[in-house]
Amino acid sequence: MAVTENNSVQEYKAIVSVLENYVEGLRTGNIERLKKSFHQDAIMYGYWEEYFIEGGISNLYDSVEKHGAAPHFSTHIDILDKTENTALARIRYERNAADKDGVDYHSLIKVKGEWKVISKLFQISVKQY
């Protein structure tokens, strides 16, 4: 059975909109806004420098609560692949709320016609000047 792809510009814009909402939630420190981008059962795994972080997406909300807004947050979003109901995206960023740089990989799924991030894989590096 072949996978049907819907690669319309509108679908790509819908995915980018979810990721831009995530970025703006981080920039402003708005946890309620962040929650709109994630599936309620989303997970996250990755490294904050040398520390391994794992578990539910509530870890992200806790981090934003701890570190606050990131007014100088700079990002670049790439959609790496997309099918009819799934997508994989990369967000490279500089100067998060803790003044760190890194990269996120987001797996998205379309549920009831709406794109949501279902998993976040990340690496936050030591700030280098």
Score class of each variant (00 low, 15 high):
Asp41Gly: 08
Lys36Gln: 14
Asn59Trp: 04
Gly55Trp: 05
Ser58Tyr: 06
Pro71Glu: 15
Glu32Gly: 07
Gly55Met: 05
Ala70Val: 10
Gly55Cys: 06
Asp62Ala: 13
Phe52Met: 01
Ala42Leu: 13
Tyr45Cys: 03
Glu50Tyr: 01
Lys36Phe: 06
Glu54Tyr: 01
Thr75Tyr: 09
Glu49Thr: 04
His67Gly: 01
Val64Tyr: 05
Glu32Tyr: 05
Asp62Trp: 03
Met44Trp: 08
Glu54Met: 00
Ile57Trp: 03
Glu32Arg: 03
Glu49Val: 03
Gly55Lys: 02
Ala69Leu: 10
Ile57Ser: 08
Asp41Glu: 12
Asp62Tyr: 06
Glu50Pro: 00
Thr75Ile: 02
Phe52Thr: 00
Gly68Glu: 09
His39Leu: 09
Tyr51Gln: 09
Asp78Val: 10
Thr75Asn: 05
His67Glu: 11
His67Leu: 11
Tyr51Thr: 11
Val64Trp: 05
Phe52Cys: 00
Glu50Met: 00
Val64Gly: 03
His67Pro: 01
Ile57Gln: 07
Asp78Pro: 03
Ser58Arg: 04
Gly68Ile: 11
Gly68Gln: 09
His76Asp: 12
Val64Glu: 04
Thr75Trp: 05
Gly68Tyr: 12
Ala42Val: 13
Asn59Asp: 09
Trp48Pro: 00
Gln40Ser: 11
Lys66Glu: 07
Glu65Asp: 14
Trp48Glu: 02
Phe38Glu: 08
Ser63Glu: 11
Lys36Arg: 12
Lys36Pro: 05
His67Phe: 15
Tyr45Ser: 06
Thr75Gly: 00
Asp62Met: 04
His72Arg: 14
His39Phe: 13
Ile57Arg: 06
Ser74Leu: 02
Lys66Met: 03
Lys35Phe: 14
Tyr51Pro: 00
Ser58Cys: 02
His72Leu: 15
His39Cys: 08
Tyr51Arg: 06
Glu65His: 12
Leu60Phe: 05
Ser63Asn: 09
